[in-house]
């Protein structure tokens, strides 16, 4: 059956939505195996089902057909083991940075000394020590996304699901956060599933790039990125890969 090294097994998953009396196929017969510690990018134009797939892994949607399993156990409701980082952050505006980061451990009834220690560690890790007592509306977009990342890490997520997390940020902030994310990934050996429509971002970050295509949404390619890290977007090999995926996605 399933490979015991797989943290995630997605087998023949189809997702249909009801839309004004017609069934829309958001994702058709998708299969994917993901190993622990892998950094996987799902890439494709809008309507290719990449976010739907991510939301099914998160437990926010249920598949119409097929099976999603984590450590060979079927995925049910959302839970702390699969931390989600949303593009619009989803921070609790009434809580400070610290309280947002400590929200998960506190909600799960961890002792307060442990919550405080965990909170401090992850607020420091994302470089927001000085802003620990600030409220979300006082932060920039990049800082908010740091809080959102720290929040799932503090909650002992095994898989971090990221839905175009840097899509709303300016280029400079995005580059910084990409580097920080790679640092954190290297240090923690988390499994990251990262949805994006930016080819360069995918090549910069991923061990594997899963290319998806719309109408109906499906997986069309699944390729390893063998470039050594740290990767340099001005490198000719990087460029060759960019051309390769660009051709696959149909814009030249």
């Amino acid at each position: 059956m399933a490979d015991p090294l797989n943290i995630l097994d997605i087998t023949h998953v189809t997702k249909r939505f009801d839309f004004q009396d017609t069934k829309i196929v958001a994702l058709s017969d998708a299969s994917l195996e993901i190993r622990k510690g892998e950094f996987v990018c799902l890439i494709g134009p809008s309507g290719c089902g990449k976010s739907t797939l991510l939301r099914m892994i998160g437990g926010f949607e249920t598949p119409s057909e097929g099976r999603l399993a984590m450590w060979d156990t079927p995925i049910g409701a959302p839970g702390p083991d699969r931390g989600m980082v949303f593009q619009d952050y989803g921070l609790f505006p009434w809580l400070t940075v610290s309280k947002n980061v400590g929200f998960g451990p506190a909600a799960r009834g961890r002792p307060s000394a442990e919550v405080a220690e965990t909170t401090k560690r992850f607020v420091d890790m994302v470089g927001l020590t000085r802003f620990a007592d600030a409220y979300p509306h006082q932060l920039s977009g990049g800082m908010k996304q740091r809080v959102a990342i720290a929040r799932v890490l503090a909650n002992e997520a095994e898989i971090v699901l990221m839905d175009e997390p840097f899509g709303a940020l300016d280029a400079m902030t995005r580059e910084n956060l990409q580097q920080e994310l790679l640092e954190i990934w290297k240090r923690t050996k988390l499994t990251v599933i990262f949805v994006t429509h930016a080819i360069e971002e995918a090549i910069l970050l991923a061990d594997r790039i899963v290319v998806m295509s719309p109408g109906p949404g499906r997986i069309v390619a699944d390729e390893r990125v063998e470039l050594p890290r740290p990767r340099d977007p001005t490198d000719p090999d990087f460029n060759a890969l960019r051309r390769h995926f660009s051709g696959m996605l149909g814009h030249h």
Binding site: G83, F86, G90, A107, V152, N155
Partner: peptide, 20 residues
Amino acid sequence: RLFEAAVMLGVSPSALFWKV
């Protein structure tokens, strides 16, 4: 989105009212 975030972080459905 705040409900999704809370559930994902481990808040039980019965605690959503007080927490969110």
